[in-house]
Each structure stands twice: as structure tokens, then as C-alpha cells.
Amino acid sequence: MVQRIKKGVARRIQRDVPVEKKPFATIGKALRCSEDEVIAAIRELMKDGAVRKFGAVLAHRKAGIGKNAMVVWAVPESRTLDVGQLLGARKEVSHCYERSPHFLGKYNLFTMIHSGAGDMAKIVEDIAASIGVADYVILETEEEFKKTSMEYFPDE
């Protein structure tokens, strides 16, 4: 794969890909390459691990997916791996990280939880019971100040 094409494709797909019949041909035209090369570059970026996902990013509130909250958990060091994996396996959990330093000196696992049509407090209670962790804080999302995608590849 020609690096110029790969870099050009990366720069183009970090933004919005047009909704049209042949979007990859349009990108290829701008980069003076074929649509097959554009698609091959995307596949390669995914294989490299540079691209986690290619597709539609939704605005969850508008998509009717309901509320979300950050929930932080105080998990003993010896259980972090187990609990992290259990939390990650839940469909309501979109993100699960271990962070250091811990929040307020003890909350070390951080999750984003989406309640869908259900009740947030109840869902979190249920998750807490299933992982055997009683010490947690629900940080509800009250206002969005910013939500953007990072520009990793500036224009040349």
C-alpha cells in the first residue's frame, strides 16, 4: 500500500464521508487513486489497529437510546481484572476503563452506562449486585458542553 494513499484516506475518513452512491470513488478522486485502493487502505488501517471502527457514529439521545451516566466503582486491586471483564461483558456498558490515580482515592473502574428505556438507578443496582461491588457513584450526564471527533491528521 502506498503510504501517500493510506495517509490521505486516513485524513479523509476522520471526518464525514459523504452519503452518496459511490463515496469511496469520491474520496479516490480527491486523492488521485481508485476506489479499490481507498477501500484497501481502510481495511489496512483497521488491520493495523489504527481504525477501531468504520461506520456511523450516532447521537444516542437523538437515536432514542435514552440516558447515559458515568458510573465509577471502588474495586479491590485483586478483583479489578475479573470485575473489569464482567462489566465489559454487559450490553449496557459502552466503555470500561481502569484509571489511576483513582477518583476520590478509591474509585478505580470507570464505566459509561446506557439505560435505554430502563431506569438508570435500577440498572446500576442490578449490575452492582452481579459483580458484588457495593461502593459506586453514579455521575449522571446533565449537560453536554462538547462532543467532537479528534482530528489526528491535520491538513497538509
Binding site: 476522520q14 464525514d16 477501531r52 456511523a56 450516532l58
Partner: peptide
């Protein structure tokens, strides 16, 4: 147009690109 789809494109993995991040 309705804003249900925010964007169609790639979601990059910052760490794979040599970036660092924090909360």
C-alpha cells in the same frame, strides 16, 4: 439531517497512533 447520525467515518484508536489521553 435529523442528527441521529452524527458522522459516517472512521473511529481511530489514539494509542495506536501514538497519542495519549486522560479523563
Amino acid at each position: 439531517e435529523e442528527g441521529v447520525i452524527r458522522r459516517i467515518g472512521a473511529v481511530f484508536e489514539p494509542r495506536a497512533l501514538g497519542y495519549v489521553s486522560t479523563l
